[in-house]
């Protein structure tokens, strides 16, 4: 064991650039594995929890009575399907849209701390890129998905797709602004844009310190994720499948999967910004005490995901003009109000 560590340190000292590259590749691999497997579990949860709300069974054949392997079966089906590129599409844009969507999601994942290890009374955050402006960066990277949506809708040469693309962009513009203002409000209170520091500074959860901002952020997040009541860009009963109408096989799978990746990352972001992240009492059991911050974060994230699925089961879909109205006429002024509140409270307690 000591020998291996010695070799690695020697190597790091001799070739720092190559060492950084190797560490980066390993980090990226672990990250994408964690995020994608997590998103698969979110899809499974979406179907299973959804069916529970609807008084149905949901997937219950593949992988035991809980249907836990259903996603694996679906993924195999999607991978082995014929890759159809319809005639008349703008091929370059069409092909790149799913890839840009997944790249954007991974960019988000890079800066999000997935928890912390509690060793010797100190928290060591698990984050790939611990940058100073990570909250701002994550917020910006989340909207890359909308660009991919518009690329997919625009290139498909389909009427439903183009409408879906337009709706997606209109919605994004209307809701990115209040969402950004909410992130700024949090940063003002935490005196930092670093997500780790924001979490560490939450002695009182920001959901209680600025409830208005919390509500606005949830609504804007659901909009960003494109879920009911804000799923106009893929409203099945109006425009078939929206921007992804012309996609099939693994390309569709990639596009669809990124929504759930975003769902998972967005829920984590909400937890980090407003619900105290990994804060919680340390479990006084060996080993468990080390990962107890992660357990707390996971529990909070699961509750957030459950709540967003519950919204889908119980609300109607808004019309696109009502969505933009709500965004510009209500959410933006209210988020500015919240910013003022955050500045007042933040400077009082500073």
């Amino acid at each position: 064991m000591d020998g291996i560590i010695e070799i690695i340190t020697q190597f790091a000292a001799q070739e720092p650039a190559i060492f950084a590259l190797i560490i980066g590749i390993i980090g990226a691999a672990v990250l994408s594995a964690v995020v994608n497997v997590g998103a698969m579990l979110v899809i499974w949860a979406d179907r299973k929890v959804m069916s529970d709300f609807c008084n149905r069974f949901g997937p219950n054949r593949v992988g035991g009575r809980w249907g836990i392997l259903q996603l694996g079966a679906d993924a195999i089906k999607l991978f082995t399907k014929e890759d159809v590129i319809p005639a008349g599409v703008d091929k370059g844009v069409y092909v790149w849209a799913p890839i840009i969507a997944s790249a954007g999601t991974m960019l988000v994942a890079a800066a999000i701390p997935f928890g912390a290890l509690h060793i010797g009374g100190k928290n060591y955050p698990l984050v790939v890129a611990n940058m100073d402006i990570s909250a701002f960066y994550v917020e910006a990277a989340l909207s890359i998905m909308s660009i991919a949506v518009f690329m997919a809708g625009y290139s498909s040469n389909n009427k439903y797709s183009i409408l879906g693309g337009f709706r997606g962009v209109a919605r994004m513009i209307a809701y990115e602004v209040p969402m950004g203002v909410c992130v700024i409000s949090v940063a003002v209170m935490a005196h930092s844009l670093n997500l780790v520091e924001i979490v560490e500074s939450q002695t009182v959860w920001y959901a209680f310190a600025q409830p208005l901002g919390f509500i606005i952020f949830i609504i804007a997040l659901v909009t960003d994720l494109g879920r009911v009541p804000f799923d106009q860009s893929e409203a099945e009963e109006e425009i078939i499948c929206g921007y992804s109408t012309e996609y099939s096989g693994i390309r569709w799978g990639l596009l669809y999967f990124q929504e759930y990746n975003n769902f998972l990352l967005g829920s984590i972001l909400l937890t980090l910004l407003f619900l105290g992240g990994w804060h919680g009492p340390i479990i006084p059991i060996p080993i468990l005490d080390m990962i107890s911050p992660m357990i707390w974060l996971l529990m909070k994230v699961i509750i957030v995901i459950w709540f967003i699925i519950l919204i889908r089961a119980s609300l109607f879909r808004l019309r696109i003009d009502q969505v933009t109205d709500l965004g510009w006429k209500w959410m933006l002024p209210l988020s500015l109000l919240n910013l003022g509140w955050a500045v007042l409270i933040g400077s009082y307690f500073a």
Partner: peptide, 18 residues
């Protein structure tokens, strides 16, 4: 009809069918 304006995941629709 409610599924048309709420999406197929709308739970009351399932309750009505049940």
């Amino acid at each position: 009809f409610l599924t048309l304006i709420a999406g197929v995941g709308f739970a009351p629709w399932q309750y009505m069918i049940i």
